[in-house]
Amino acid sequence: MLDRSRRSNISVTSWDLDGRILQYFLTVIAEGSIRGAAERLNVAASAISRQIGDLEYRCGLKLLERKPRGVIPTTAGRALADFARIQHEDSERLLNYFRTLHGQHEKIMRICCAEGLAEDIIDHVLPLFRQSFPRTRLQIQGRPAADIASVLLEGGADIGLTYDLVPCQGIRSVLCASQPISIIVHAGHEWLEHTRIRPRHLAARPLALLSENHALRRRLQQMETNAGVCFQPTLEAEDINTLRSFVMSGQGISLLPHFTVRRQAEAGVLRTIPLDNMPLCVTTHVVARVQRRMDPMLESLLGMLADHHPALQPPVDSVTRLSA
């Protein structure tokens, strides 16, 4: 793209940046190719390529860089993508205001959660949010922790909840707290009479762990390295609920943060035991795009999460509210 005698003058105006071309551009970035965007939008690939090529020509800048397996945005392309997402959010904010004037209940707040974090939003945050914002619908979607940043960057959610945030350009943490990972046992387990359980003791027991690609499992791998042990789990699972069921059935033990078994602990069917001499913590982050504007409703939601979500209520350390 961007040939046409290597034009350098800028002739594009703000009116050229209409919703359709910006949608095409964001979809190309999300799909990683013009062909993928064409299939997703049900538009001819040649039409998308022509629109983006014409925009590059009029900007006098290359917006996409071709790679063997698709395209990636250039520096100018990333700036355009940020602009497009902000414009989309502003448009949604205006439409929500119009809906309010019409008495329609169509405001939407979208949260993308890593596994194990959505339940407590429903229990502890949703009732307060509904009371404060009765005309707003809360959308919660579950994704692997590794996918949260991509969802936010593509404009698929307003905020995300994830574990052990990996630095990512364009994403910032606005709220975080750490909790220890504990041994999870059933209510009648003999270890409840002991106070010094170490990693080497776990290796000799039937153990249920999350799959190796799960963010929480990667924290345990760090502990294995530090303690010089290698866990050979009896059961590996993709979801926390399966691990809880394994422990409740009396077949073995697991390792999880306390907040993931809060309901079962309150019901008296599961108990948590701290690891002796080798504490291991997981940090839960609330994240957003760097360019995301913190409007009053989002600020209020962050306050509710900080005050009421169990993953953000560590037993020892305080919650850290990062500057917006």
Rank of each mutant, 00 (worst) to 15 (best):
L202R: 02
P180W: 08
A227G: 09
Q221I: 10
E224W: 08
Q291H: 07
L175V: 06
Q51E: 14
E212M: 05
I10M: 13
Y163C: 05
C112H: 03
L255W: 00
A146I: 10
H88D: 13
G188L: 11
V229L: 13
R205I: 01
Y24M: 06
A324K: 09
L302A: 13
S11F: 07
G228I: 10
F246K: 04
A84E: 04
M248L: 10
V174I: 15
H124A: 09
T260V: 11
H309W: 09
Q104M: 09
G228N: 10
C113G: 05
L256H: 01
R218G: 10
A208N: 05
L153D: 03
I72Y: 05
P233T: 07
R7C: 04
E236A: 02
H194Q: 15
I72T: 15
H102G: 15
C59E: 08
I121R: 03
R40A: 14
S211W: 03
S245D: 11
T242V: 08
S300N: 15
D317K: 09
V290I: 15
Q87L: 12
R137G: 00
D120E: 15
Y57W: 12
G60C: 10
R172P: 00
L26V: 06
E92D: 13
T283N: 08
L207S: 01
G160Y: 02
L256E: 01
I121N: 03
N9D: 11
T260G: 04
I197P: 02
L220Y: 03
R35T: 15
P314L: 05
R244D: 00
V71I: 07
L128N: 13
T283V: 14
G60W: 05
Q51Y: 09
F231M: 14
A114C: 09
R262V: 06
D295M: 05
V247Y: 01
P134Y: 05
D276E: 14
R6W: 02
E238V: 04
V229S: 12
I121T: 06
S5D: 11
Q141P: 01
P257Y: 02
S46R: 11
L22T: 06
Q104N: 08
S173R: 05
M278Y: 03
S318F: 07
L126H: 14
P144G: 12
V282D: 06
H214W: 01
T320M: 13
S46E: 12
I253K: 01
S46V: 12
V151N: 11
Y97C: 09
S14A: 12
H102E: 15
R20M: 09
G60A: 11
G103L: 06
P257R: 00
R271Y: 00
A114N: 06
E238F: 02
